[in-house]
Design a binder for these strands. Structure first.
Length: 464
RNA sequence: GUGAGCGUAGCUCAGCUGGUAGAGCAUCGGUCUGUGGCACCGAGGGUCGCGGGUUCAAACCCCGUCGCUCACCCCA
């Protein structure tokens, strides 16, 4: 007789339970409110997309695409398979429909449609949706935000999960005015202030565009080759794969070497230099504190010009709570019309972790009233008043079976109720209710009208 | 993918040089049939992650394995 197996959440995933989930809801709701005031609208895109969408936008050589994606094969039904095979000009008779099997060459040819991936980020999806729905014809800039889970197959550690949550915003349209970048950063900082995350540092940089960056990368590679034997194995490898990332190295003994490397700010083309300078003016205009970080490069291929990152305290070595930048060529790369774009993604797990560490938690609404009824003769009155209180927005716990009075007050206390509503035979006889404030034991007799009136005004007075 | 640390009750942990399991908190009940937080009494809850080995005897020693955590890589 073996015990049935117990299940646990998969590696890198976790449950968010009450009361933690209330903190999460508050965090995400605050983002919705702030972003709304800047004219952003909510976009909900699928959790999975064709693998090719991510491969093409993020870049085949990035870590995210090359080793971190959850990818699976869409099990095509035989008739779907035949249809797709015929559409693509293959001989349908070569498909063994009965077994759902097809020759490898045909599978390979179909792979563009057949492979699906759990989204590792959402910018690609937003861009796909922008193109798919012809949003370039919408008036003004298209401003969208999203809230939801992302998936990357990594080894979990503090502030890093396989299913993690992001809040992101994107601005798409014809303009790449630095004011757009600055306003996006302003919105970001306003949000972080609203949720009490003030001890953060905003780093900004410009990594050039397709005109000037390739030349700089070559120069950097050339310089790195001169000092190759002084670098560690990781940095050596990056000389070939992505020289920019060497700048990001944290190895102590490499710092002196990195400090002498050529900086992109000295090698930007005139347009990029102008764009970056005006961005910094705009940030000053808006009173946004930032630090210029010439070593700030981003890991995804689509970034151009403006890049930024927000670092918070109280985290482990994964201390970036937000990252983003401009991606002016991405829409075209995805076969869309010429379009400029910029966006960011906030790591909610990390942001909430940091808020927790700072100890500055918001007071979130809990249970308002516990109904302590005594004896079956009072039950009907208890049920009726519970319903009325709930209708007016008060949260109420009503025991479904009789319990000792002491025990019900005890339970009210343990559940964290603000009030106990006492209903005994006296109250029923006089048509009143006894409301007891549990924090200080203060209690008063009220009519139904007075009770509703009192609790509703209490509710309005309570922030949150 | 690489490295390190840790797996004993729901949670936090104790358990000596091997002698077949404990505390606090939590839960439930009682003291206590109209006033909670406190106190006291009691109860339930563990094949000590799993498998193998050594031994008269393993939570403890050895090997393997799985899981968790942190770090590297990289990113939010």
């Amino acid at each position: 007789m073996t015990q049935p197996k117990q299940f646990r959440a998969s590696k890198g995933t976790r449950d968010i339970l009450p009361p933690d989930s209330a903190l999460w809801n508050w965090f995400e709701q605050t983002a919705r409110e702030v972003f709304g005031t800047y004219g952003f609208g909510d976009i909900r895109t699928p959790i999975f997309e064709e693998t090719q969408l991510f491969a093409r936008s993020i870049g085949t050589d990035t870590d995210v695409v090359s080793k971190e994606m959850f990818t699976f094969q869409d099990p095509l039904a035989p008739e779907e398979l035949v249809r797709k095979v015929v559409e693509r000009g293959f001989d349908a008779t070569k498909v063994h429909v009965a077994g759902g099997q097809a020759p490898k060459a045909i599978w390979d040819a179909l792979s563009e449609f057949e492979w699906l991936t759990l989204r590792p980020e959402a910018t690609a999806s937003v861009c796909r949706a922008y193109i798919e729905h012809g949003m370039h014809v919408l008036p003004g800039n298209v401003k969208l935000y999203y809230v939801g889970p992302m998936f990357r197959r990594e080894r979990p550690q503090k502030g890093r999960y396989r299913q993690f949550y992001q809040i992101g915003a994107e601005v798409l349209g014809q303009s790449d005015a630095p004011a757009i970048d600055a306003e996006l950063l302003e919105m970001l900082m306003v949000f972080f202030k609203r949720v009490g995350l003030t001890r953060t540092t905003l780093y900004v940089n410009s990594i050039g565009d397709k005109n000037c960056r390739p030349q700089y990368v070559e120069l950097l590679r050339h310089e790195l080759l001169q000092v190759k034997d002084q670098l560690g194995p990781d940095s050596r490898r990056r000389i070939e794969t992505n020289p920019l990332r060497v700048l990001d190295s944290k190895l102590p003994h490499e710092q002196a070497i990195i400090a002498k490397l050529p900086r992109i700010s000295d090698h930007l083309c005139a347009e990029c230099r102008e764009h970056f300078a005006r961005l910094k003016d705009e940030l000053k205009l808006r009173g946004i504190a930032y630090e210029e970080n010439w070593r700030l490069v981003r890991g995804l291929d689509y970034y151009t010009r403006t890049t930024f990152e927000l670092i918070a305290e109280g985290l482990g070595s994964q201390n970036a709570v937000c990252g983003g930048g401009r991606y002016d060529g991405l829409i075209e790369l995805l076969a869309g019309p010429p379009t400029k774009g910029i966006g960011f993604a906030i790591g909610s797990d990390r942001a909430i972790l940091s808020i927790r560490e700072s100890g500055d938690l918001p007071r979130l609404p809990g249970l308002d009233v516990f109904v302590a009824w005594m004896g079956l003769s009072t039950y009907a009155a208890a049920v009726a008043i519970a319903r009325k209180l709930r209708e007016s927005g008060v949260s109420v716990e009503l025991p479904g079976e009789e319990m000792k009075f002491k025990k019900s007050l005890n339970l009210a206390d343990k559940l964290g109720a603000r009030y106990a509503l006492i209903i005994g035979s006296d109250e029923v006889a006089s048509g009143t209710f006894t409301l007891k404030r549990l924090a200080d034991a203060d209690q008063k007799k009220l009519s139904e009208y007075e009770l509703l009136e009192y609790l509703e005004s209490e509710k309005r007075g309570t922030r949150g």
